[in-house]
């Protein structure tokens, strides 16, 4: 897993699933919760998507609003939950 690829995957997900393909003005620091792009159902689905895609589990204590605010924050959240080589 590489953080830049992760940003691409998440940006594509937000564009296709949440913005009807309209990625104009979207960047990795767009405030997704504040703008109502992510709500409870969509956040649940997006977390389900990344956990399945990368085979990871995001710990409950990391589920904080500040970790879900932007694509960049979500990328960090996912990146930090990646399996590490011993």
């Amino acid at each position: 897993m590489n953080r830049d690829d992760l940003l691409d995957v998440l940006t594509r997900y937000v564009t296709d699933e949440l913005l009807d393909g309209d990625a104009e003005d979207l960047d990795s620091s767009t405030p997704l919760l504040e703008l109502g792009v992510l709500n409870s159902l969509e956040t649940a689905r997006m977390m389900g998507f990344v956990q399945k895609k990368y085979g990871i589990t995001i710990p409950s204590e990391s589920l904080k609003v500040e970790n879900l605010q932007t694509i960049s924050a979500i990328a960090d959240l996912v990146y930090d939950a990646r399996p590490r080589q011993p």
Partner: peptide
Amino acid sequence: IPEALAFAPEK
């Protein structure tokens, strides 16, 4: 229940 937890139904 913090709002972010409401985003993760399993949690």
